[in-house]
Design a protein around this nucleic acid. Structure first.
Lengths: 216, 216
DNA sequence: TGTACGCCCCCTGTTTACAGTGAGTTTTAA
DNA sequence: TTAAAACTCACTGTAAACAGGGGGCGTACA
C-alpha cells in the first residue's frame, strides 16, 4: 500500500482538527503540514521543491493572506504534480468556475459526509477528478444564468473603477487615484451604468457588492 | 466522574464529524443526538422533556429551518436547565449581542483551538459561562461603536426614503411616490447622509443593504 | 408647559452625476 | 498582421446630488 503525503490548509482550527481526526483513521495518509493560510503552504512547497513530494493539498477557499483560489493557481503553476482538493462551505458559481478553469482536482462542500470526503481524496490520488453533485449543480447553473456574463463582461479597469465608486469616491478623486483624466472615469462610469443596466451610483454600488468588490 | 449528555447541531457534516472525533476522546461526554438543523434539536428536546436530561447543546449559528439564535432562544425559554454553547465562524457584534441577551452560556469561534473548545465545554458544564476573547472583543466593540445606534436612530420615514434611494429612484421620483415635496426628500437624504456618516448615494445604498431594506 | 423629536417644507448655491457623441492608442488574440 | 477589445481622453449640455442654512406643525412625554 502506497503512502501519500498531504497538506491541509484551513483557517478554522476546529475544522482542521476535525479533518485530522477523520484522516487519522487512514494510515496511508501522512499529514506533512497544516496551515491556517495559503501563504504558508505556498512557501512550504516552494522551499521543499523536489525534496518532498507532496501528493495532495486540501484547502479551504476563504483564508487570509492567500486564499484557496490563489493557492490553487500557485500550485498548478509552480508545482503541477501536486493535486488540489478544495473543501469549502461557499460554493458560488464564480468560485467554482474559476477553480475548475484553474484545473483544480476536486471540490467538496463542507456539509458533505465524511465518507464522501474520503472518496474524493482516494479518487483524486488515483489521478481522477472529483466534484460533489452540489458543486456540479452550481457550476451548471452558473453556465446558463446571465449572472456570470455580467461579471465577465467587465474589464479589469472597469472593476477597479466600480470598486472605487462603491467606496464613495467621486469621479475626480478616482481620476486622481488612478492617475487618469476625470473624463476617462466618467466614460467608465457611463459604460458601467450601461453594461450593468442600472441608473445611478446606487445601482452600481449594489453590483459592486454582488461582485464582491467591496466589503459589507 | 459524572456523565454528561450532549447534543450537537451543525449543518456542515464534515465539521460535525470533526467535532465528534474531538469529543470521542472524552468518555464522560455522551453524544445523544447530532442534527443538521435547529429544528430537529428543538423537536427532540420538546418530545423527550423530563425523560432525558440533556446537559448541553452545542450549535452553529447558520442553519436551515431554525438557526442557532432561534434554537438558543427556544431552549432558554422551554428548557432552561439545558446549557447552550455556540460554535460559529460568524461573530458579528449583532449576533453576539443577541445571543448574550438571550442568555447563551458560551460562544467559541470555529477557528479556536481544540483545547479551548474542551475548556469551554467543561466550564459551561461546571455552571459558568465561557466566551472566547475574540468574541468578547467583538461584543465590546459593538457596544461602543455607533453601528447599531445608527440603525436604530433612523425613523420610519427615513428608512422608507433610504429604501427607495437604494432602489435607484431619484429625488423627484421618490417625492412623487410618497406624495411629498422634492425638498422634503432632499432633506431626508441630507439627514441620512449625515446620520449614517457617508458621502453619497453609494454609501447610502450600502447601508440600505446592511439594514435589509432592499434585496441584493 | 416646554422641549425634544419626527415630519414636512423652502431657498441659495456649488459640485457632481448623467447622457450623448466622438476618437486616438495600446493590448490581445484570431 | 489585422481586427477586436480594452483603455484612454475630450466636448457639450442637462439633471441631480450635495452643502448649509431656516422654519412650521404635531405629538409625546417629563
Amino acid at each position: 500500500m502506497k503512502n501519500y503525503k498531504l497538506i491541509i490548509a484551513d483557517d478554522h482550527k476546529m475544522f482542521l482538527d476535525g479533518l485530522l481526526s477523520i484522516l487519522a483513521s487512514k494510515k496511508e495518509y501522512e499529514i506533512i503540514l497544516t496551515a491556517n493560510s495559503g501563504k504558508n503552504v505556498a512557501k512550504y512547497l516552494d522551499i521543499n521543491n523536489d525534496n518532498e513530494s507532496i501528493d495532495l493539498v486540501i484547502t479551504d477557499v476563504n483564508m487570509p493572506d492567500l486564499n484557496g483560489i490563489e493557492l490553487n493557481r500557485h500550485i498548478k503553476n509552480k508545482h503541477p504534480k501536486v493535486k488540489t482538493l478544495v473543501v469549502s462551505m461557499l460554493h458560488d458559481a464564480q468560485t467554482v468556475q474559476t477553480l475548475t478553469q484553474d484545473n483544480v482536482d476536486g471540490y467538496v462542500p463542507k456539509n458533505a459526509e465524511k465518507a464522501e470526503l474520503i472518496h474524493a481524496i482516494t479518487t483524486i490520488l488515483d489521478g481522477e477528478k472529483y466534484f460533489s453533485q452540489s458543486i456540479k449543480d452550481v457550476y451548471l447553473k452558473g453556465m446558463f444564468s446571465n449572472e456570470k456574463s455580467l461579471h465577465e463582461s467587465l474589464s479589469k479597469r472597469e472593476k477597479e473603477v466600480l470598486k472605487l465608486i462603491a467606496q464613495e469616491y467621486t469621479t475626480q478623486e478616482i481620476a486622481d487615484k488612478l492617475f487618469l483624466s476625470k473624463h476617462t472615469i466618467e466614460s467608465y462610469r457611463k459604460n458601467l451604468i450601461s453594461k450593468l443596466e442600472v441608473r445611478n451610483l446606487a445601482g452600481l454600488t449594489k453590483h459592486a457588492l454582488k461582485l464582491g468588490l467591496v466589503d459589507e
